[in-house]
């Protein structure tokens, strides 16, 4: 695992997201070089508190993604409620209010598929706990573009549906509990 190299990480989570992310994000040390883009399913009319909540716990800079914002290493970006988050080829963030996908906006698939286009083999996709199928197609796109797939073990996940769907669509995904995902991400080297 120590040989893994990447340019960026994308994470998708739904029901039970807080607990799973709490096992990962706070563990990443200051100076962690990769950007992390995250979609969590949240109700659209609610102001997201995710970025503030995690900023308080993390060594990394945590913020809500803004439209056309250049992506910086060592920064965690959360999709705002009610908007899809995408990655442009020039490594900027983009938001859109296109229709929900699989009843979700933000959608994990939308983030993953655009990130796969932008980063190709330099991307690591992580699917965590959740009660729907979002992320399964996106994870497949990441692997098809040469990227790496990590999935939270369905056993022990708050909700196993999303990890199971992801594993079904990407049988080669590396499956492990959030604590190990954190360790794995820590050991990734930044690809220039």
């Amino acid at each position: 695992m120590s040989s893994l190299e990447a340019q960026a990480i994308v994470i998708g989570a739904s029901a039970g997201a807080l607990e799973a992310l709490s096992a990962i994000l706070p563990v990443l040390p200051k100076g962690f070089g990769l950007p992390i883009m995250i979609v969590v399913h949240v109700p659209p009319d609610r102001d997201s508190v995710l970025s503030e909540l995690f900023q308080a716990k993390c060594g990394l800079l945590v913020k809500e993604a803004e439209d056309k914002e250049p992506i910086l290493g060592g920064t965690v970006y959360f999709a705002p409620p009610g908007y899809h988050l995408l990655i442009e080829a020039d490594k900027c963030l983009a938001l859109s209010s296109d229709e929900p996908v699989l009843f979700s906006r933000p959608s994990i698939d939308v983030l993953f598929e655009s990130a796969a286009d932008a980063y190709g083999s330099g991307l690591i996709g992580v699917v965590l706990t959740g009660a729907n199928q979002d992320g399964a197609k996106g994870l497949q796109a990441i692997v098809e573009a040469g990227g790496t797939a990590l999935v939270q073990s369905p056993k022990g996940a708050f909700s196993s549906v999303m990890p199971e769907a992801a594993i079904k669509s990407v049988p080669t995904a590396i499956v492990m509990p959030p604590e190990q995902i954190a360790t794995c991400l820590q050991n990734i080297r930044v690809r220039a």
């Binding site: 056309k68 442009e88 080829a89 983009a94 859109s96 296109d98 655009s114 286009d117």
Partner: peptide, 9 residues
């Protein structure tokens, strides 16, 4: 136009 979402559509 913003290419990522345009491409998707």
């Amino acid at each position: 136009y913003s290419m990522a979402s345009l491409k998707r559509r």
